[in-house]
């Protein structure tokens, strides 16, 4: 379910968050699907349970997963998609830098749009 890049400078817990979100977006994981417990995933990925717990806490805060005591952890029933203003601003800043590089390489507006649409379509079945 999750493939980690141990050589990446991106923190492991962020990689877990990202990949679970991606699996949800691609609908490989659907509402109500059980996901491994913190300890099982830690054992499987060979990382500290604390790291998995940190990722799960964040996913729970974002209401992407829910833990039912005594039953396990599941993809949340209804995933509410509401953009976090602060986060959007952060992403905008990152995009600005990336777009600048594309522009320097001669990318036109249309080429950029095609690229972004391509990535978006790869990500979800919508």
């Amino acid at each position: 379910m999750i493939l980690l890049d141990y050589k990446s400078s991106k923190p492991i817990y962020e990689q877990i968050i990202e990949q679970i979100k991606l699996n949800v977006m691609k609908q490989y994981l659907k509402p109500g699907d059980a996901i491994p417990s913190v300890r099982k995933l830690a054992l499987e990925l060979e990382i500290t349970p604390g790291t998995v717990a940190k990722a799960y806490q964040e996913l729970e805060r974002q209401q992407i997963i829910e833990t039912i005591r005594g039953k396990g952890t599941f993809i949340a029933g209804e995933i509410e998609l509401k953009p976090d203003e602060k986060k959007v601003l952060e992403i905008k800043k990152r995009l600005q830098t990336e777009l600048m590089e594309l522009k320097m390489m001669g990318y036109s507006k249309n080429m950029v749009v095609d690229l972004v649409v391509g990535i978006y379509e790869e990500m979800c079945v919508c």
Binding site: A42, L43, L45, E46, I47, T48, P49, G50
Partner: peptide, 9 residues
């Protein structure tokens, strides 16, 4: 230690 790492809190 590789074993402990993946189970210990």
């Amino acid at each position: 230690l590789d074993g402990l790492e993946k189970i210990c809190d």
